[in-house]
Simulated assay, not measured.
Amino acid sequence: MLRLSALGDVCNLVPTVRALQRQWPQARITWIIGKAEHSLLSGLSGVEFVVYDKASGLAGMREIWRRLADTRFDALLHMQQALRASALSLGLKANVRVGFDKARAKDWQHWFTHRQLAPHSRAHVLESFMDFARLLGVDDTTLEWNLPVPDSAHGEARRLAGDAPYALISPCANPRLRNFRNWSAEGYATLIEHLWNQHGLKTLLSGGGSIQEREMGERIRALAAPEAVIDAIGASSLKGLLALIARARVVIAPDSGPVHMANALGTPTVGLYATTNPDRAAPYCWREHVVNRYPDAVRAYLHKGLDEVPWGQRVRHPDAMTLIRADDVIERIDAVLALPPRDRVIPEPRQ
């Protein structure tokens, strides 16, 4: 399997791995994966990881080719629509190379594969990955994750959050150029006040250590009651974040890794979507609880209807997320907190 990034996407791919393992329990599965993504999924049962650090460039590819020089795979599942991944695939030996169909392939990926998936229009990302298992003859596509979260990560989570119940807000998506997925500090502060006053829940702020994320955290804290906020931005490892998410009563975030991590762990999830289509990229098991302003953003900023834009079209406008109203998010939060608890897929730490 070749899928390097990103955090949310690799979480959506894990059910495909589990489906392959159920079909062929003795199969050897090798996953070529990105460095950060490996730190999130390391320890995934039955999988041998080969890590590629994109900062290593061609030298890193050559190292992987040397490592796998004596390995010939029965099938290479090329699940990354990027030229970097396609270039890496050229140095791997495989009897067959499977990739996306032309409608879903990007960056000329179909030139690097022998066989393409059957067309699947308007597919969610998770379903697109599962199509690889279907092509290989897998019938049981039951969703299963069982992400590994070590005891050390639970200890990290307890040190940051304590033992009292809390909500988790991850306010920022990846700080890439023209990403425009972030909501407002004022909106998040309103949610924090509601969670504290109406549900007695503190809110833990999570995120990486980028300047953008730290500044967003500072703005939110300036607007919210200090006793209602636990600031963990830049303070946790990725495994620690998994543990924090697993223990949260609810996770609220824009289209980013944490909503898909929460989905994989069975944690109630409220995704905030305006610049990306939730029908394609929402937290899969919590799609009905997404705040969806994507159709409004398409009309307002692309001046088109949903049926007039390509599947996966993003609305790259800095004001798109302002279409989300705090009342809409609060309604979804109240709804998921009222649901009976679901069985979690990760065990409690050993005492």
Rank of each mutant, 00 (worst) to 15 (best):
Y188R: 11
A55G: 10
N146F: 01
A105M: 05
I169L: 15
G34T: 05
V47L: 11
N182Y: 07
V51G: 04
D327W: 11
H260G: 00
K35C: 07
A157K: 00
D9L: 01
L92G: 04
A27V: 14
C11I: 00
A118V: 10
N95K: 15
R221N: 07
R67V: 09
S45G: 12
L135I: 12
I211W: 12
V14R: 00
A232R: 03
D163P: 06
V290E: 04
N182L: 03
E213I: 02
A164I: 15
K239I: 07
R247P: 02
S236K: 01
L191Y: 05
P295M: 05
V50K: 06
P347M: 12
D334M: 10
F180H: 10
W24S: 04
Q81W: 10
I33E: 01
G209T: 12
P295L: 03
L302A: 14
E127Q: 13
D70F: 13
A103K: 09
H38C: 10
E37I: 02
A161V: 15
D334H: 14
R287P: 02
R332N: 06
P295S: 04
Q26K: 15
H124L: 02
D131C: 11
F132P: 07
P310N: 13
N95L: 15
E213K: 02
T190Q: 15
V125H: 03
T142W: 09
A253V: 08
E218Y: 14
C285T: 09
V250F: 02
I32C: 02
L147K: 01
W111M: 12
A69H: 14
